[in-house]
Amino acid sequence: MKNPISNLQKVFENRIRLGIMSALMVNDSLSFNVLRELLELTDGNLASHLKALEQQDIIQVSKQFIGRKPSTTYQATGYGKDLFRKHLAALEDLLSNQ
């Protein structure tokens, strides 16, 4: 039998990254402020995890104007979504094998 642990994605072992990605799976895009309130994080903490996810092409950043104010929003990439689904399936496998 294949070992389900091999499908666990190291990048999602961190609870904060897991949280960011969970939110971006069910929303087209979310702003920095909304993510910060949702996950109850400080600016610096959230920014560093977003940066890490961005560097691995799991999420993409876009700057846009909402009204007259610039806003930074985040989206999951197709690759990121696949990776997350794989991780989710591995978690479920682990659970059912316990």
Binding site: G19, S22, V34, L95
Partner: peptide, 24 residues
């Protein structure tokens, strides 16, 4: 909020919770 985890049960629970809250 815990930073690293190897508990699939808690992870799945956290995922469900955030998906639910963030889609409101």
């Amino acid at each position: 909020m815990k930073n690293s985890s190897t508990h699939p049960n808690e992870d799945l629970q956290a995922i469900r919770d955030i998906m639910e809250r963030s889609s409101r």
